[in-house]
Design a protein around this nucleic acid. Structure first.
Length: 216
DNA sequence: GTGCCTTTGTCC
DNA sequence: GGACAAAGGCAC
């Protein structure tokens, strides 16, 4: 096992004591048969190798970095939502579940994203286990994050081009925001090092921002 | 399979 | 209305 996600104890010390697991406002959505109501201890879906939470991480995830953002839980009546889900599905309409990740989860996700924009299958699975998320959620998060950064870069580039600047080296403002998470919950800078991972990025080799910028 | 990209639906 | 996770579609 090579993944040691951000040394949980440090995270624990840096984290506070609230939101840990993702809060899914479930209106009935997922088809995988997994229950939608992600209670604070239950992973949303089990798509890939979902394993019981590592104890240390369990502790970690029961704490959360900032209490100011403690998510709200809206747990619908399961029967009702289930029916609604099936019904809507049958009609080709989907009831989406929007998970609200905890600050701890976001923190770790961003931490990894900072180091690697693309994770291998195994890394995602491990990360999903550690974060008590599904593999799909981790994958989706990384995808959305890449899109977000790409959009950010685009707009930044565009605006800078409008000011006769041709290249933007790093979306520092965006990274700034993200970096704040790290300062909040990953204090000692001992981040999980998957850095030797040979992630084959198609796009990020062309991206000019690197992890250093995240810490600025 | 996973990627990008767009769209959709939900939450604040 | 923006931000976000997730779904849908297409390409490799």
């Amino acid at each position: 096992m090579s993944v040691d996600v951000a040394s949980p104890q440090n995270l624990l010390e840096a984290s506070d004591s609230k939101n840990s697991s993702p809060v899914t406002t479930s209106l009935g959505a997922k088809e995988d048969g997994t229950s939608l109501q992600m209670s604070s201890a239950e992973p949303p879906y089990s798509e890939t190798a979902r394993s019981p939470l590592p104890s240390s991480v369990d502790l970690l995830l029961q704490k959360s970095p900032d209490s100011s953002t403690s998510p709200k839980v809206q747990l619908p009546a399961s029967a009702e939502t289930d029916a609604a889900r099936k019904e809507s599905k049958g009609q080709g309409k989907k009831q989406k579940v929007r998970t609200v990740f905890s600050q701890t989860q976001l923190c770790i996700l961003k931490d990894h994203f900072q180091k690697q924009k693309y994770l291998s299958l195994q890394q995602m699975q491990e990360l999903s286990e550690v974060l008590n998320l599904s593999y799909k959620q981790v994958k989706t998060w990384f995808q959305n994050q890449r899109m977000k950064c790409k959009r950010w870069q685009k707009t930044t580039n565009w605006s800078k081009n409008n000011h006769a600047v041709t290249q933007v080296s790093a979306p520092t403002e965006y990274l700034d925001v993200c970096a704040s998470y790290h300062q909040g919950c990953l204090p000692s800078g001992n981040l999980p090092m998957w850095s030797n991972q040979s992630w084959n990025s198609q796009a990020w080799n062309n991206q000019s921002w690197n992890s250093q910028a995240w810490n600025n």
